[in-house]
Design a protein around this nucleic acid. Structure first.
Length: 541
DNA sequence: CGTATTTGACCGGCGC
DNA sequence: GCGCCGGTCAAATACG
């Protein structure tokens, strides 16, 4: 159900940049966390205006009516709260607009008055003293109004921050409910889940966590990935600045009895998101600050592997590895691992969120289903062969990894599109590349959401909630923050757009998701289109 | 001088 | 038990 609840307020201010922005705070379609973005408006308001739009859109919760009850109530409460805020802000915005219009107009008057005053040229029949007095009065009034405007701006900022905080809180509730529901619908032992999901390997940290082996009701023990700052640092951070990346942590705290959650958290740090992209730069820009702490020559690749850790906050456990591909050294492979313990800028938040959510997706996809099958093997049962790859999911040991491969070139020898493929909205080959890049997140979301739907996971009882798939979209969002990477991505998409006509000659480009069995009984899921590419691989331990 | 990077040493997991 | 390997640590070095 699309339930926008938004506000827009305009503020004309000559001191602001002529550029205007819309700031959205909304949950992405398949991502439960709330995302904020600022973008230039397509329709330019008058010069000097500043426009905020705060809106929400919920359109994926209809699949989960039961578990959504709680969230729906919460959201209704929130809507009511926000409605009040909206009213307040709208009226204040009107005040601002009126005031700003007044400022614009009277500002001209003021200049005129000053000019007249400075040069003592009076030819309108008014006395100089009267004119000067009038100008001073206007100046005083303007200063007072500006003062009031500034105060109101601060207050509006606070309100905006508060609303965003509420969004984050609701998102955390949503994650909680969805996870609880998933755990209910999947009747399994946590220990089995861990072993099956991660190839039977447990980390040393996991072995040190007694709660991991407790099937239910274990004492509240923080996962190793989260243990360092939650009792102190997290509380020190302004809760309003806590982004969705922190959601899982708070969920864990909110559900101390949920040992499965804790087990998941404990293993998530080991799950990885890997990005392959063509780049001459030594490292892609992802919005975070990194410090290099090591470099190794890994076996099978003459190119050194560099190890980085996040330095945006002390004790942040997030690490990444950067290595060039041995086969094609123009390809840069960046692998992320762990959860940030600090607020992040939007671009970095997207990337960080992707690693966490992708990890969850991997784990969810590995959950044994009620009939005893391993869903990771069923993950893509309805897909067809022959493809390149854009996204690869590997649940194999030692670490489950999601790989985004954005290096593929188009292949004009396209395969016949299968019936169950989904299609990218690239119907127009002349379509703007930038706008296509903007669609990529939805592409990933759609791809992974669909693949889950086709996989026998019974998405009505989603074991792989759509919001988790959406995390990969955020990865792309984050990557596109890097100009170099954006260029590469644009080139890739451009190649998709321009190079991929299907056998019918229609200028339509597709992402097809397919699946093939492998020798060892596992399933390889892939799209069968050499233009847009999704591949899901499960080596099935 | 403070910070970031480099690089050899060290550690733990895993296979034989 | 031993060696290999990936990952991390920390002293040395480079840099601004």
């Amino acid at each position: 159900m699309a339930k926008p609840c938004g506000l827009t307020f305009l503020h004309h201010n000559n001191n602001l940049s002529p550029q205007s922005y819309i700031i959205n705070s909304f949950p992405t379609q398949q991502e439960s966390h709330w995302k904020a973005e600022a973008r230039p408006m397509d329709l330019s308001p008058p010069r000097g205006s500043f426009q905020f739009q705060l809106s929400t859109a919920h359109d994926h919760d209809q699949d989960r009516p039961d578990e959504m009850d709680f969230f729906a109530r919460k959201r209704d409460d929130h809507d009511r709260d926000q409605s009040k805020v909206t009213d307040n802000l709208a009226s204040e915005a009107d005040d601002h607009r009126d005031l700003s219009d007044f400022n614009v107009n009277t500002g001209l008057h003021l200049v005129t008055a000053n000019t007249c005053s400075d040069h003592s040229i009076v030819d309108d029949g008014l006395s100089p003293d009267s004119d000067d007095k009038k100008a001073k009065n206007e100046l005083g009034a303007l200063q007072a109004d500006l003062e009031r405007t500034n105060i109101e701006n601060h207050r509006l900022k606070d309100l905006l921050s508060q609303v965003t905080n509420n969004y984050n809180t609701l998102q955390m509730h949503l994650v909680t409910v969805m996870q609880q529901q998933s755990h209910k619908s999947a009747d399994y032992e946590p220990e089995e889940f861990i072993n099956l999901g991660l190839g039977g390997q447990r980390s040393a940290e996991a072995d040190a966590e007694p709660s991991l082996s407790l099937p239910e009701g274990g004492e509240h023990i923080r996962s190793p990935a989260n243990n360092m700052d939650h009792s102190s640092k997290e509380d020190d951070v302004d809760p309003g600045s806590q982004n969705a990346w922190m959601g899982s942590h708070k969920v864990s705290r909110l559900n101390p009895s949920n040992s499965v959650d804790q087990a998941t958290e404990a293993t998530i740090r080991k799950a990885r998101v890997s990005v392959r992209a063509r780049s001459e730069a030594p490292m892609i820009t992802d919005g975070c600050q990194w410090r290099k702490y090591g470099q190794k020559i890994a076996k099978g690749n003459p190119c050194p592997r560099a190890y980085y850790r996040c330095t945006m906050a002390t004790g942040c456990p997030v690490r990444k590895q950067v290595q060039r591909c041995a086969d094609d050294r123009s390809i840069l492979i960046t692998t992320y691992e762990g959860n940030h313990n600090h607020p992040l800028p939007p671009a970095a938040m997207a990337m960080a969120s992707s690693t966490s959510s992708a990890a969850r997706m991997l784990l969810s996809g590995s959950m044994p289903s009620a009939d005893g099958t391993i869903n990771s093997n069923v993950l893509a049962r309805s897909f067809l062969p022959c493809s390149n790859n854009m996204a690869t999911i590997s649940a194999s040991a030692p670490f489950p990894t999601v790989t985004l491969d954005l290096t593929q070139n188009p292949n004009p020898l396209d395969c016949q599109r299968p019936q169950n493929q989904f299609q990218l909205p690239f119907h127009n080959p002349q379509q703007n590349v930038a706008s296509s890049a903007a669609l990529l997140p939805q592409i990933f979301s759609h791809a992974l959401h669909n693949q889950s739907r086709f996989s026998g996971l019974q998405m009505s009882q989603d074991l792989v909630p759509p919001h988790q798939a959406g995390s990969l979209a955020d990865t792309v969002n984050a990557l596109t923050a890097d100009p170099n990477f954006t260029a590469a991505l644009a080139a890739a998409i451009s190649s998709v757009i321009g190079g991929g006509s299907n056998p019918t000659g229609s200028p339509t480009n597709n992402v097809n998701v397919t699946q093939t069995p492998t020798n060892n009984g596992s399933l390889t899921t892939s799209n069968n289109n050499s233009n847009g590419n999704i591949r899901v691989t499960n080596s099935g331990n």
